[in-house]
Design a binder for these strands. Structure first.
Lengths: 240, 240
DNA sequence: AAGTGGTCTAGACCACTTG
DNA sequence: AAGTGGTCTAGACCACTTG
């Protein structure tokens, strides 16, 4: 019962104390906390140890430290909403209910827009595949994926189906950074057909550019009907 | 020229050195960095100072530190895409080009779904307003905002127009946490009229629930045509 | 046994804001 | 002048993995 508490290092105990004072509301926003020296004295600890507790809470954004004045309880800043763009088909992949269907695979010459987006020369060749991702054999996402052949030359020889090209790409050439853009679109006639949509439905379209170091690795456009694809906490089905 | 470098504390210099080795690719992923003791020796610095450089880079995710073994260059984990949900009308608000038009403002009794979502009792009253947000007098966003009157009682007396109800709410009762859900929808006939949309367009719909401590403060549904509202890096207009 | 990172101490000097 | 946080030192003990 007490055993796990005894193992906590001293700076963590001080941190716990400070955090509980803040989160309980005992110290409202703007309150001055005990100084490093005061904490060091009251916890019988060196100043460096007291300092560490304060500093780590400041790093977390709970405190603001002002040289010459002291440490103050900070206004909890609104955390950037953590919309997880990647987790959509992950469940299906671990389930084993994931599969996909390749619609086309071509090597095409880049037009001006593609060249700009992929930072290559006009006319350079790009591997371009169009496919549909399925869960339990029902199409849930359409994708057009353009790949820089310099970074993933063997793409034409791969057989996908259980493995998505994105996962394969991540394997042969991990992305070092990504950019995203999200918008709502109406699917084209061919997209509707490939997604087996009866009537006109709004779709979320995610455009993603992945980099490997200084080079653009791939450009992906995924389109998913809202019935299958929502981002964030599910607030609408909250009727429990 | 050199003056700003001279002011950097020593731990920051060591940090710079380590970071440059990592980012230049000289130390690929998995490389073992010099140990705390080695860095301390080569920079003529105490171990605690060398340690700080390594520790702060580990906190940033650039290094992984393993007791007994050493510090290693870590795989840059894909940062959660930082889609900033709030920044959409911010520009207009600082410009002065923002305004809004109130469509309705009612106190309504909560139905079962609303009661569940707002964590109140069935039949409790909720302030509910519907409005359109404009930029340069052109409608760009439709909103339905439901407010817990316990937390913002004076809402009926406010005159909005240059100030959005969201900003007012944030003023009288800052949110401590928020949940979001994003989906694509087709606007209803009345939404199309209020947004002055000629033909059917796909819209991004953001549902947001804000909390003040343990209580639900407000529930907001915003709907914006994609022409006005995209999230993330603009990849499609990248034709420079 | 030698090396690693994790924690901690008791000092020090600094620039800074406060009464 | 006294207090604050920011930086730094030269030690210490620890649990741990390595040859």
């Amino acid at each position: 019962m007490v055993s796990d508490k005894a193992k906590l290092p001293r700076f963590a105990l001080i941190k716990q104390y400070l955090q509980s004072q803040i989160e309980s509301g005992d110290w409202p926003i703007g309150t001055r906390t005990p100084s490093e020296n005061e904490l060091a004295a009251s916890f019988s600890v060196s100043r460096m140890t007291a300092r560490r507790a304060l500093q780590e809470l400041a790093d977390k954004g709970l405190l603001a430290r002002v040289p010459g004045q002291g440490s103050f309880v900070a206004k909890p800043e609104t955390k950037p909403p953590n919309i997880n763009i990647h987790d959509q088909l992950v469940q299906a992949k671990t389930d084993g209910t994931y599969s996909n269907r390749l619609i086309s695979l071509n090597s095409v010459a880049a037009d001006q827009q593609m060249a700009n987006l992929m930072h290559i020369a006009l006319g350079d060749h790009v591997d371009c595949l169009v496919m549909v991702h399925l869960q339990n054999n029902r199409p849930v996402q359409w994708q057009k994926l353009s790949i820089n052949p310099v970074l993933a030359p063997a793409i034409g020889k791969q057989k996908f189906n259980r493995v998505s090209p994105d996962d394969y790409l991540e394997w042969v050439s991990p992305s070092t950074s990504e950019e995203h853009q999200l918008m709502a679109v109406l699917p084209s006639a061919s997209q509707r057909r490939e997604l087996a949509l009866q009537d006109q439905t709004a779709c979320l379209q995610l455009t993603r550019r992945s980099w490997s170091g200084q080079q653009v690795r791939s450009l992906s456009i995924t389109t998913s009907p809202s019935a299958h694809y929502r981002l964030g906490v599910n607030l609408l089905d909250a009727s429990r």
